[in-house]
């Protein structure tokens, strides 16, 4: 396995780590983001470290009508496409301003679902490929502290599940990644428990392994599977009084 890997939303800390892990495994890399020229240094890094080919592509997840053309103009349809597009936003602002909430919903659900739908159709036509969606444990249950972001991720998780079901017999595999806490700029100013917090490189390695082994749903650190199972199973009358 060494075909090209497309990274959508390539500027984030998680995306950079995933790109490195695929490059280390010998894949060429397509980095896609808004103003992709700002990723020149990231491209240089991948070439310098791993001696692989890297190309840059302009991509805006929120401009849905550009997605078909984006897929058509890729130099080659990738073997693996990873969607790391998303925005956490600020819960308080999302509550006060429905416009801001809509932006979070679109960034984490509508945009990612749209681009993956285009890629899924192209891969289905080809009869091979792997799609990876970076969703979130926040989508496993809506909590007061971040339910706007969480609900978008819940939608995205359901979308990935359905897509996987649809493509299971078409040679296209879909991986859902639920990273948990990851030590990136997104966590600045937040204290997170050490055992639940992964380094970006761990996520990268876990994603490559999940693609190679055709896993369906992965949590970066296995302990999250237990934590989220507990959180999902708290009865609603109790859950609504908690502050998690």
């Amino acid at each position: 396995m060494s075909g090209p890997v497309l990274i959508l939303g390539a500027a984030s800390g998680i995306a950079r780590a995933i790109a490195r892990s695929f490059a280390e495994a010998g894949h060429s890399i397509q980095l896609a983001a808004r103003n992709s020229s700002r990723l020149e240094d990231d491209a240089a890094d991948l070439r310098t470290r791993y001696g692989i080919e890297v190309s840059l592509h302009d991509f805006d997840a929120l401009t849905l009508d550009s997605h078909a053309a984006f897929v058509d103009t890729l130099p080659v349809l990738p073997e693996v496409a990873v969607c790391a597009v998303g925005a956490m936003g600020e819960q308080g602002q999302s509550e006060a301003d429905p416009q801001a909430a809509a932006h979070i919903l679109r960034s984490n659900f509508e945009g990612p679902a749209s681009i993956l739908a285009h890629l899924a159709n192209a891969m289905e036509a080809r009869g091979s490929g792997t799609l990876v969606g970076i969703s979130s444990v926040a989508g496993d249950r809506g909590r007061a502290s971040n339910y706007i972001y969480g609900s978008a991720k819940a939608g995205f998780t359901a979308f990935l599940s359905g897509l996987r079901n649809r493509l299971a017999k078409k040679g296209v595999h879909v991986v859902t990644v639920l990273p948990g806490f990851v030590r990136t700029a997104m966590l600045d100013g937040m204290e997170t428990p050490g055992p639940l917090t992964a380094e970006p490189a761990e996520v990268g390695a876990a994603v490559v392994k999940a693609v190679e082994k055709q896993k369906n749903v992965i949590y970066t650190r296995p302990i999250w599977r237990i934590v989220m199972a507990v959180i999902r199973n708290i009865p609603e009358p109790v859950f609504k009084k908690t502050s998690l």
Binding site: D41, A44, D45, T48
Partner: peptide, 28 residues
């Protein structure tokens, strides 16, 4: 540590960002 890009390498001359670790340099 997020600024850990290696920018170029030729004949033993490396240009890299400040967050690159010596461990990365050795591994590479």
């Amino acid at each position: 540590t997020g600024m850990d890009r290696m920018l170029s390498f030729e004949d033993g001359v490396l240009v890299a960002e400040a967050g690159v670790l010596l461990a990365d340099i050795i591994q590479t």
